[in-house]
Amino acid sequence: MNPICNLFNIKYPIIQAGMVWCSGWKLASAVSNAGGLGIIGAGSMYPEVLREHIRKCKIATDKPFGVNIPLLYPNIEEIINVVIEEDVKIIFSSAGNPATWTSILKEKGITVVHVIANSKFALKAEKAGVDAIVAEGFEAGGHNGREETTTMCLIPMIKEVIQIPIIAAGGIASGKSMLAAFALGADAVQIGSAFAVAEESSAHPLFKDKIISSVEGDTKLSMKKLVPVRLLKNKFADIVEQAEAEGASQNQLTELLGRARAKLGMFEGDVEKGELEIGQVSAMLKEIKPAAQILTEIWQEFIDAKDSLSRLTM
């Protein structure tokens, strides 16, 4: 059996990314009900809001689901307490040191997966005792690795140095790209952008429309002096680019970003002044569909592509 399907007790090795302002209980439960692993994105939630989403997700699905927790979250202890109190079984951690919380979570019987973007941190995550890692390439939307290593390069390099299962992420929104990730050594895929435009995504309709109307080259990695983040180009992204070209400091970029900039764009729908986090693969997304349809289409294309390749080698 596939090691990730076995680890999470799911039907398909397809994980929905825990994206800020997109991944609420509706999306997570829809993906889980379709046979994948849905994830609630805690990065844009206050502790009690997260608690509400967890409880609603449990009502909406009897299948496994997880919560993504950025470890640099300012209320991290409260968030950790919420997932323990609400008996969440799967945690995807990111943006921080997995050694800090992994052992505590695992003592509570929680399966822990950590998101990394290079071999060094893959080894650190494995040493910290995580059950699997998400290896996220440069193509991915949102916060990204400083090395700018593409998924096609990252996965085989990670495969060489760790023994635990690998979930590939970044630039994957089709069955064909999923098959490519498996050929490189992945055991499963994590998909963000394709689910950001799902009907059940909590992203604002104007943000979804902006995504499906985007074309090749409409995203760019920005704010490298802070934490690199891939954004869809708009007026805000232009302002950031100009500030960086003029040598803006970390403090100036932080002030420019502001706490609510992502909420403004992705959740409230100001697609010019807001921050629009999305991956390069957005240029391939042309429709808003139910999450279950997105998942089943990706899986069927994966099977068809695998069969097609098998015939070619005969």
Rank of each mutant, 00 (worst) to 15 (best):
K124S: 13
K124F: 06
K124T: 02
K127N: 09
K127L: 13
A128I: 11
A128L: 04
A128S: 15
G129P: 03
V130W: 02
A132H: 03
A132K: 07
I133E: 03
I133A: 06
I133Q: 08
V134T: 12
A135M: 04
G137P: 02
F138Q: 01
F138T: 02
F138C: 03
A140M: 09
A140H: 03
G141A: 12
N144L: 13
G145V: 05
E147Y: 08
E147S: 13
E147Q: 09
E147I: 02
E147M: 12
T149V: 15
T151C: 10
T151V: 10
M152E: 01
L154D: 00
L154M: 01
L154E: 04
I155A: 00
P156M: 14
P156K: 11
M157F: 04
M157D: 14
M157Y: 06
I158P: 00
I158S: 00
E160D: 15
I162V: 15
I162C: 07
I162P: 00
I164Y: 05
I164D: 07
P165M: 13
P165Q: 13
P165Y: 11
P165N: 13
I167E: 00
G170L: 01
G171M: 08
G171L: 05
A173D: 07
A173P: 00
G175A: 08
K176M: 13
S177K: 14
S177D: 10
M178W: 05
A183M: 15
A183I: 08
G185S: 10
G185N: 09
G185R: 11
D187R: 02
D187P: 02
D187H: 15
A188Y: 09
A188L: 10
V189R: 03
V189L: 11
Q190K: 06
Q190W: 02
Q190I: 08
I191V: 15
S193H: 01
F195I: 08
F195W: 05
V197A: 03
A198M: 07
E199L: 14
E199Q: 14
E199V: 14
E200L: 04
S202K: 10
A203R: 10
A203K: 06
A203H: 04
A203C: 15
H204R: 05
P205K: 12
L206E: 09
F207V: 10
F207E: 01
K208C: 13
D209Y: 12
K210R: 15
K210C: 10
I211G: 00
S213M: 06
S213K: 12
S213A: 07
S214E: 06
V215A: 06
V215C: 05
D218L: 06
D218F: 11
T219C: 08
T219Q: 08
K220F: 11
K220D: 04
L221H: 04
L221C: 13
S222E: 10
K224D: 08
